[in-house]
Structure formats: structure tokens, C-alpha cells
Design a protein around this nucleic acid. Structure first.
Length: 389
DNA sequence: CCTGATGCGTC
DNA sequence: GTCGGAC
DNA sequence: GTCCGACGACGCATCAGG
């Protein structure tokens, strides 16, 4: 039951209605089916909206390593709500204490509001591109310019769009569905879309196994290259023949880290090995770092959350470049960066001291001569080297 | 130029 | 990082 | 047991407002 016509931009309402269904349903199989249906409509009527929809579903606006942030929080949203919903800040704060969710507050305010004219409909791509615009705003008067964009969005909301738009703006979508639900839903949609349009009659068992296998492929592909800008176009182009092997691990795109597991203590852990030889690693009190060297010789550093931290560690970048054997073309290392006091017998410093380092930002690295906390690095894994593994 | 508010990322 | 709920 | 989202402490970056 699509609510728009082929070739036109999909309305944001299409997403909001799906979110509303998904939020009420707690069973994972059913929520996957709902999201799958939503994607099937997009595939059939406006496939260009699939990528923006994936981003809106997962509450992201770009791959993690591009460090794109909205720079919007509850404060600015409340201020925009006050202006566009005719409710005072104090009333909003009061309602927030009761509801515990700013999106629910906004929805409630909207329902008590009488509109003179119906809002101009929001499309999926408009919402997404406005979020990208918001992230690009900076400098003097930036709060005001952000607020104008937010006001436009809020004033255009229909039905339950308000709830999910506001939740998106404060980055708390709360639909209980992230990558582990969205990716299978998208994969299922691609399979069913093909079955529908090309139409050879296949057995129920055949379809089920195709759903399962494409779902696995897409999930594996995301675990190697967590970048929807690359994955979605590739998936749409190849359809059910999409294979994870078509995307390879590439320096410059961070890999989701295998986090160290918690155990019940040394004795318990030792039992797992039955006296066989093993290695262990000290738990350093620093910051996780994934170190990439690209084939062009450049070096990039990523955090545990796969954010680009290169601008924070120019000294580490130089260390790596100097240590590099020229015949090593490219690699990905898993490591821990720890603060170190080279004037006091190389004493390792606490996490807190390391964290007092300057941070730089998206476009500017910190100055190497201003660095007050030296660092050292403990490498504990080589995840990739010259195209291997 | 300084200070507080706001937003973000790390553990 | 910790905690507690859902499975 | 495992997963995952909510939560907290702390520090830096940026901007508004004086």
C-alpha cells in the first residue's frame, strides 16, 4: 500500500509510518518484515531513495569514519519547538520529565496545535539532505542558521513524522532496529523485488534459502566495509547475485574491531586452554587505535567507534611512516595508544592524562610542536597486509 | 578577551 | 567504562 | 551466557554573549 507514485520522491511519511509500526512491535522477525516491505516499495517506486532511507533508519548521515556530525542537541531542538509548536520552553521541559522522550513531547504538542494550512510534504531525500546541510554549518551565527533549517523541517511534519524527526535530530531514534535488522531487511527486499518483477515461479524453499543467503552476504560485506555509500549501490546493481567477496578489506576504511571479551577471572580463562600454550596481552589503559597505511604511503588512524582520529595523532602518523619498510605497501594494525612520560623513565600515563591531549577537528590536525602528552603504541594484531587476510 | 553553555567522543 | 533487561 | 542500549565521568572544541 504505497502512498506515492512511481518516479516521484518517496514521502518521509512512508518511513515514519514504518517506524511507528516497528516501534510498537517487539518481535524481531516481524519488524524485519515491516522494514523489508518499506524497502520493497522504495525499490519499486523510487530506488534512489533507498540509500537515504537506510541512513535515516540507522540514524546516521554518513559512514562513521567521515566524522560528520549534526552538532544539534536537545537545547537547539527545544528552542525550535518553542517557536514552531507554540509551547513554552518550561512547558516542554516539564513534559519531557513525564515522557522521557523529546520526540514524544513534540508529537503531543503538534496534536494540540491547529494548523492554518496543511504542511508542505517532506520527502525522504529532503530530510536526509537537510541533515547533511546541518552538519556542514559552522562559524559565527551557526546556531541561528541551524535553527532555521530545523524550523522548516518541524513545520512540515505530518502525522507521526514529528516524533521520529525530532528523535532523529537528537540522535535517539529508539525503534529497536539497527544494522543487524536493517541489513537483513534490505537484503530480503532485494530478493523479493526481483522475484516479483522477473517472476519465474520458484519453490517456497528456494526463496527462503535465497533470503537467508543474501542476508548473510550483505551482513558479511558490512563487517568488512561498513560503508553504506559503497554497499547499497553495489547491492542494488548486482541484486540477488551480490556477494560479500566482491568487496575487499581496504586500508582507508576502518574494520569493526573485535573487542576484548570479559571473563570470570584468570582461573576460569585458563580452563579453556587445558594447559596448552597460549599468549596473553596486558590491558593497557589508553585508547584503541586502528592504524591504516594506504598504498600511496599515507597513514590514517581510526578509533574503536571507527571515527577518523588522524588529526589527533600526527606524532603517531610520523612514527609509523618512519618505521615503515618501503616494500610494505599497505596494512591495517590493531593497537592501543598510551600516554608516556619520556622524562620519567618512560612511565606509562593514565587514560585521563592521555585524554587531556588536544583533539583537532575534521579539517585541522593538532600542531606537533604543541603536543604536551607523548604517546607510545602497543600493536596487538596485523589485520591486513599487502592484500592478505 | 574571557566565561559559560552546548555538543561530542573516549573509556 | 558500568549496569541491567531481553533473549 | 550473550547482546545491546541506557547511563556516567571527564575532557576538548566551538560558539554566544558580555
Amino acid at each position: 500500500a504505497a502512498c506515492w507514485t512511481a518516479g516521484h520522491p518517496a514521502p518521509y511519511l512512508h518511513l515514519a509510518r514504518t517506524f511507528d509500526l516497528v516501534e510498537r512491535e517487539k518481535g524481531k522477525i516481524k519488524t524485519t518484515a515491516m522494514l523489508c516491505n518499506m524497502f520493497r516499495s522504495l525499490l519499486a517506486l523510487s530506488p534512489d531513495d533507498v540509500l537515504p532511507a537506510v541512513y535515516l533508519c540507522t540514524n546516521k548521515i554518513s559512514p562513521d569514519h567521515e566524522n560528520m556530525e549534526l552538532n544539534i542537541g536537545g537545547s537547539l531542538v527545544i528552542s525550535a519547538m518553542e517557536e514552531s509548536l507554540g509551547t513554552s520552553k518550561s512547558k516542554i521541559h516539564e513534559m519531557y520529565k513525564t515522557y522521557g522522550d523529546l520526540g514524544d513531547v513534540a508529537q503531543e504538542c503538534r496534536q494540540n496545535q491547529t494548523l492554518l494550512a496543511p504542511p508542505r510534504p517532506l520527502s525522504v531525500r529532503d530530510v536526509y539532505s537537510t541533515l547533511r546541510k546541518l552538519s556542514a554549518i559552522s562559524g559565527g551565527g551557526s546556531a541561528g542558521r541551524r535553527k532555521i533549517l530545523v524550523l522548516h523541517l518541524i513545520r512540515s511534519c505530518r502525522e507521526m513524522e514529528m516524533k521520529f524527526l525530532v528523535r532523529t535530530l537528537v540522535r535517539n531514534l529508539r525503534i529497536g532496529a539497527m544494522m543487524k535488522t536493517i541489513l537483513p531487511a534490505l537484503a530480503h527486499a532485494v530478493v523479493l523485488h526481483e522475484k516479483c518483477s522477473t517472476g519465474p515461479v520458484v519453490s517456497l524453499e528456494g526463496v527462503k534459502s535465497q533470503l537467508q543467503s543474501l542476508s548473510t552476504e550483505v551482513t558479511e560485506a558490512y563487517n568488512v566495509i561498513p560503508n553504506m555509500d559503497l554497499l547499497v549501490p553495489s547491492l542494488l546493481c548486482e541484486g540477488a547475485t551480490f556477494a560479500a567477496s566482491s568487496l575487499a578489506m581496504v586500508p582507508g576504511t576502518p574494520i569493526p574491531p573485535m573487542l576484548a571479551r570479559i571473563t570470570n577471572g584468570v582461573t576460569q580463562a585458563l580452563k579453556l586452554f587445558h594447559g596448552r600454550a597460549f599468549t596473553c596481552e596486558y590491558k593497557y589503559d589508553g585508547q584503541r587505535a586502528q592504524i591504516h597505511r594506504l598504498t600511496d604511503g599515507s597513514v590514517q588512524i581510526f578509533s574503536r567507534q571507527m571515527k577518523d582520529s588522524t588529526s589527533r595523532f600526527p606524532d603517531l602518523v610520523n612514527m609509523i611512516k618512519e618505521l615503515c619498510n618501503s616494500e610494505v605497501a599497505s596494512f591495517i594494525l590493531d593497537a592501543e595508544v598510551v600516554g608516556i612520560d619520556r622524562n620519567k623513565g618512560n612511565r606509562l600515563m593514565s587514560f585521563q592524562e592521555l585524554s587531556s591531549r588536544e583533539r583537532g577537528s575534521k579539517n585541522s590536525s593538532i600542531a606537533i610542536q604543541n603536543i604536551k602528552v607523548d604517546i607510545c603504541v602497543f600493536v596487538f594484531d596485523i589485520m591486513f597486509c599487502n592484500g592478505q587476510r
